[in-house]
Structures are given as structure tokens and as C-alpha cells.
Simulated assay, not measured.
Amino acid sequence: MNGDDDGQTYFDDIEAGTVVSCGSTTVSEDDIVEFAEQFDPLDIHTDPEAAAASQHGGIIASGYHTLSLSVRLLVDEIRSERAVVGGLGIDDVRWHEPVRPGDTLTVENEVLDTRVSESNPETGIVHEAITVTNQDGVTVLSLENRELVERSGPD
């Protein structure tokens, strides 16, 4: 799938319909609290007693933590090898179920479509669906992403 000898995957090498499993990560309570204390300090993420009294019955991860963990797995598996110019945006971000301490999250990436950029034909736009599930196969996060990727050369 690498377009040139430089090891990069270029836009021209990315095909719609491609599905890639991006691995898994397990979230600890310490991870959840540490992230939340810095970025989303709600009691349901940081205070075990308050979280236990909430409708969640215990600490849950910030949705932004779940999103960040997902991005890390995507970069490790796919994006670090892509000739990424930059992100164009994410749409339809949905947190379906809470992520709890001990959950193992798995990320799957599906290329929905690709098109050459109209404003810069040296690049293309990759539109992807990203789904994150827990160890029970329950979807905890879903979103769509668009990123700008360098083309390998002229047509």
C-alpha cells in the first residue's frame, strides 16, 4: 500500500472500502482520573465517591479521553505512515456508552470515500468512519473524519 520508496502511503494508494483494525488499549482508573484532572475535571471522571453516587455508579472516562486514545491508535496503525497534510475536521462524534476503568478499547477505521482536492489537486481528501468498541463488542464512540493527504505525483 506504500506509494513510493519513502515508506509513505499517499492519497493515490488509499482505497474506499478499506477497513483496518488499529489495535486496542486498556484504560485504568488512574489514566481516567489523570486525564480528567487536566482536561475535563468533572466529578464523574475524578471523584470516586461522587461518581459512585451518580447515575453511572462509578468513575467513567471523559469522552475526550476516549477520543484521544482512539487518535493515538489511529496514528500508530495508519496515520504515521500516511503523507498527511492535516486534518480537515471530524463530524458526527457520538459517545454511545461510558468507558469504565478496566475497559479495553479497540479502534476500527473504514475509508468511506476519497476524492482529489478541488482547491489543491496535489492532495486528496480521505473520508473515514471510526468506530471504537469495548471488550464486549459494544460501540462506545463513533465519528467520521476527513483528512488531507498528499498525492504521490502527477497523473
Rank of each mutant, 00 (worst) to 15 (best):
A52F: 14
E34T: 15
D31I: 10
A51M: 01
H45P: 01
E29M: 08
G57D: 00
E29G: 05
P41K: 11
Q38K: 13
P41A: 09
S54F: 03
A50W: 11
D40V: 11
S28T: 13
Y64E: 04
I60E: 01
Y64K: 10
S62Y: 11
T26V: 07
D31V: 10
A52V: 05
A36G: 12
D40A: 12
Q55E: 04
Y64M: 15
L42I: 07
T26N: 08
I32D: 00
V27P: 00
E49M: 03
I44T: 06
H45Y: 07
F35E: 03
F35L: 13
D31T: 12
H65T: 05
A36I: 07
F39E: 03
S62G: 13
A50I: 07
G58L: 05
A61Y: 13
D30S: 12
I60V: 15
A52E: 06
P41G: 11
E34Q: 14
I44G: 03
T26G: 08
V27L: 12
D31A: 14
I60K: 04
Q38T: 13
F35A: 10
S62D: 03
Q55C: 02
I60G: 01
V27T: 00
L69P: 00
G58K: 05
Q55S: 09
L69K: 02
P41H: 10
H65M: 15
T66L: 06
V33P: 01
A61M: 14
D47P: 00
L69W: 04
P48Q: 03
D43E: 05
I59Q: 00
H56I: 01
A61E: 02
S54Q: 02
G63E: 02
G58Q: 00
V27R: 01
I60Y: 08
V33N: 05
T66N: 04
L67P: 00
A52Y: 13
T25H: 10
G57V: 01
A36N: 10
P41Q: 08
E37N: 15
V33G: 07
E34M: 13
E29H: 11
I32T: 07
G58Y: 06
S28E: 01
